[in-house]
């Protein structure tokens, strides 16, 4: 009887369900369980093979990908076709978020390093959500803005550090 109850009415909890996975991502930390369930209906889980291209540099970009499991390599190509690795991302990471709000081409390529499951969330879904469920869209955008500003802070700090290093080098050169 309890098995039947769980099958019919029970909701999967924890990392098993898509909603649980989404809740573990810092991007969606603000969300309540109900929001997460609605979000789980919006996103697109896709299974990728080993060494499958997710997107290439120059593709039209329209959203972000979350890694549910597996690993993804982010890289660029120089003019001779050599690959330069930028990062290897693992389960729980996300990439491509810069194109979610404003349409732009992808500035790097992404390819899986093993069999992976990625969860796509695209601009069309966000726009739909803004019309249907503005509260959820607000929380989504808030999380996204926070993640972006954290990255901006990091980039800013890195830039300052480089700037100082450059100054010191120039000062040494003058001496």
């Amino acid at each position: 009887m309890s098995l039947l109850w769980r099958n019919v009415f029970g909701q999967k909890t924890g990392d098993d369900s898509l909603a649980g996975f989404l809740g573990s991502i810092p991007l969606f930390a603000e969300m309540k369980p109900r929001d997460l369930r609605q979000l789980a209906a919006l996103v697109h889980p896709r299974d990728y093979d080993d060494k499958e291209t997710v997107f290439s540099e120059g593709d039209p970009g329209s959203g972000l990908y979350l890694i549910r499991n597996g690993r993804v390599k982010i890289f660029t190509r120089d003019s001779s076709g050599h690959e330069h690795e930028i990062a290897v991302l693992e389960a729980g990471d996300f990439f491509g978020e810069t194109t979610l709000v404003s349409p732009a081409v992808r500035t790097a390529s992404a390819r899986t390093l093993e069999k992976s499951q990625l969860v796509g969330f695209f601009r069309a879904d966000l726009l739909d959500c803004m019309e249907k469920n503005p509260r959820l869209a607000l929380r989504l955008l808030f999380g996204l803005t926070r993640a972006m500003s954290e990255r901006l802070h990091l980039a800013d700090r890195e830039l300052k550090r480089l700037h100082h290093a450059l100054h010191e080098l120039q000062a040494e050169g003058q001496d």
């Binding site: 697109h44 499958e52 291209t53 997107f55 329209s62």
Partner: peptide, 18 residues
């Protein structure tokens, strides 16, 4: 739209919406 291969899924999804 989900039947489209991964490589073109993003584009197909976008186009379907537009």
């Amino acid at each position: 739209v989900g039947l489209v291969p991964n490589r073109y899924y993003e584009m197909a999804h976008d186009l379907a919406w537009l």
